[in-house]
Design a binder for these strands. Structure first.
Length: 563
RNA sequence: CGGGAUGUGGCUCAGCCCGGUAGAGCGCUCGGUUCGGGACCGAGAGGUCGGGGGUUCGAAUCCCCCCAUCCCGACCA
């Protein structure tokens, strides 16, 4: 590809809207161009990279028996009403205004509906169906360039199985395929346990890269291999011993005490002795969550526990339900329609302090078993830095990460909702057991850049580079340079994809800067200086290493470098 | 959705506080000189100052409303 005839709109200045390196470099190198918040045009250079990623994915998916589909982005809203996901996606899903259609944020519903109408027998299973397709999600706050956008390309695949045992096989096949995809792409990644969230299902894992630009918090243990999304992470935090020191509760006046810290200070007790009450509202009933001290409610854990959507209560609702406001709530004496869930840290706790459900009053010496009704105990707290690891006791560390892939064991949630059944060997009808698996294409590219750049630009590897070689004619006014570089270009183009910077109106410096910015791994520099010795220069983008190569040895040198 | 910031030629920004003919650098066009790390000289083209309303003799500048973009947060009683 001759640079002079190509559309490679490189930019010298850092775009003011871009904050993280990958975003800045993707725009500066002319890979992408923003059209709106979270909406990007893919320019030729960027699209070549994305296509390379898609091809790697395609190969690995095909090698585990995947069959490629291309499903519609427009979906009838009725299909999504049947699985209840119009509600659970809420505002994240785009709705078409002048038709009863939505823009699909994922494709479990379409896949399941196809399976429903065509899969009849256990003999037709298992299946792995996938596609590489545009997804639409109305992110409230797009950020970090293509890392969180409102329209993006995803490889999504779906496994259809007869049982949870064979689902495990399909799931593991995907896990292995994903590892190969990231390895081939050159990403440094790790795998963590994750929450299934709105997808539902019995288990899931995420493929993450560590990055301060990440939106997920990951709990890692440096000693053993424990790594988990904060959303489901657990720790071995010590429970304190609760001693009973009184046979009944005692109501105390606590004026203007709203927070646990204020309460502990006011009563001169340790924070851990206080129990915080948090109230959520579901479509069924209010739920009072009891947490120890300043422990935070992990809403992802709560979602998994409840299996239903919920929201934080309003101040008005609190007064109506408990007769008291925030800061004075507690589990003692609450009405029967309030479900009380208590975090495991407070299991069987005695002598704790809770709100009295009377403004500006708290209860001391509360014995949860004696004085209140606890409907369930569960682990619903957020793990904190330096707590002991659940499996080895070592101090846990919290890091930020970007999710580049997520695999789910869905189970039968969608097949049951849409009645996608098969007949087993005994002629009984059973729901198909499903898995779903996603990889974001642009994210792989962005994450790769986050891990591979320097002050001059991107540093591509052989697998993802948009072109194999970057040929630079230093001075297009020199007949010698023109003749030689044209000849080299024609020769190399037979075996490689080559960018040939043949621009006659820019100086050598501009060409060098552009080459470093684009980040093609191998630069071939043709200038008069070396041509006088029948040579050209090769510069390796990553190491900066330069070699002078005789013209006749160029082909073999390139071959060697490409091995 | 809450908080903060920004919006001025293609890009990066100044001008706004203190109202009075719209600026710089880069990029672009033309001519010339240069030619191995974002060259130089000269001449040009290009902007309803995000949109609407208001105040004023006069608004990029002051006031109100809206829109867009970016950042932080999203619950902790």
């Amino acid at each position: 590809m001759r640079f002079s005839k190509s559309f490679f709109p490189t930019i010298k200045e850092i775009p003011s809207d871009a904050v993280i390196p990958s975003h800045q470099l993707m725009i500066r190198s002319g890979m992408i161009k923003p059209l709106g918040a979270g909406i990007y045009s893919f320019l030729p250079l960027g699209y070549r990279v994305f296509q390379k990623i898609m091809n790697i994915i395609r190969e690995e998916m095909n090698s585990i028996g995947g069959q490629e589909f291309h499903l519609p982005g427009l979906n009838p809203i009725e299909l999504w009403q049947e699985t209840g996901r119009v509600e659970s996606f809420g505002d994240i899903m785009f709705h078409v205004k002048n038709r009863q259609l939505i823009l699909a944020p994922t494709h479990e519903e379409v896949i399941t509906s196809i399976a429903k109408s065509h899969i009849r027998s256990y003999k037709e299973l298992p299946q792995i169906w996938y596609q590489i397709q545009t997804k639409f999600r109305n992110e409230p706050r797009p950020k970090s360039g293509v890392i969180r956008s409102r329209q993006f390309i995803m490889k999504d695949s779906y496994s259809l199985d007869t049982s949870f045992e064979t689902l495990n096989t399909s799931y593991n096949l995907h896990s292995e395929a994903y590892k190969k995809i990231y390895d081939r792409s050159g990403l440094k990644y790790f795998i963590i346990g994750a929450s299934s969230g709105a997808m539902g299902g019995s288990g899931s894992q995420e493929f993450m890269i560590e990055s301060n630009a990440g939106e997920d918090t990951i709990v890692v243990c440096d000693k053993c291999n424990y790594a988990s999304n904060l959303e489901i992470a657990t720790s071995n935090k010590q429970k304190i011993k609760f001693e009973n020191i009184s046979s009944k509760t005692e109501k105390v006046f606590t004026p203007n005490v709203k927070t646990i810290d204020q309460l502990a200070q006011f009563l001169k007790v340790p924070v851990e002795q206080c129990a915080k009450s948090v109230v959520y509202i579901t479509d069924k009933n209010p739920i009072l969550i009891l947490m120890q001290g300043n422990d935070q409610v992990n809403e992802a854990k709560l979602l998994t526990l409840l299996g239903t959507e919920f929201r934080v209560s309003t101040d008005e609702e609190l007064v109506e339900i408990f007769g008291a406001e925030t800061g004075s709530l507690g589990p003692v004496g609450v009405s029967k329609n309030v479900k009380v869930i208590c975090d495991n840290q407070l299991r069987d706790a005695k002598n704790v302090i809770t709100g009295a459900n009377l403004n500006d009053f708290h209860l001391m010496h509360v014995d949860l078993l004696r004085d209140s009704r606890i409907d369930a105990y569960a682990d619903i707290r957020v793990v904190e830095e330096n707590e002991p690891c659940i499996s080895c006791g070592n101090s846990l560390r919290l890091i930020k990460g970007i999710e580049v892939g997520h695999i789910f064991k869905l189970g039968t949630k969608y097949s049951v909702a849409l009645k996608a059944n098969y007949l087993d060997e005994s002629g009984n009808e059973n729901p198909i057991v499903m898995g779903s698996y996603g990889i974001g294409i642009e994210r792989i590219a962005a994450c790769y850049i986050e891990q591979n750049y320097d002050e001059n630009g991107i540093i591509w590897n052989k697998a993802l580079t948009p072109y194999d070689l970057h040929l630079i004619a230093v001075n297009m006014k020199s007949e010698k340079v023109i003749e030689s570089s044209n000849k080299i270009y024609e020769e190399l183009s037979k075996r490689y994809s080559v960018i040939f910077d043949d621009r006659s109106q820019v100086t050598a410096g501009v060409k060098f800067k552009d080459a470093d910015l684009l980040g093609i791994p191998i630069q071939i520099i043709v200038g008069e200086r070396n041509l006088d010795n029948n040579s050209v220069e090769i510069k390796l983008r990553r190491s900066g290493e330069r070699k002078i190569i005789k013209l006749e040895a160029l082909q073999t040198e390139i071959e060697k470098l490409n091995e």
